[in-house]
Amino acid sequence: MKEFTYTITDAQGIHARPAGQLVKLAAGMGCNITITKDGRTVDAKRIMGVMSLGAKQGHTVTIQADGEGEAEAIEALETFMKENL
């Protein structure tokens, strides 16, 4: 299992569009991916869950990947978060 923690800098947080992009990216990966915020964990491949986190600017989220290709997955997700959020 691999993970990283990221603090959101985008003024609007994980709003509808980046949530969609994030889920799309996660859905294409073979391993399990979760996002945790304030102790609540959701499946990163499910958009309603990701949106329900209500992650906004200044919030810290932890992304975990578990399974085949977890290292690549974490790398790709980290890049995505830095570029878009």
Binding site: G20, R46, G49
Partner: peptide
């Protein structure tokens, strides 16, 4: 596009 994804959301 986001609406489409929501329709496919497993939850």
């Amino acid at each position: 596009e986001v609406h489409q994804m929501m329709l496919d959301d497993l939850d």
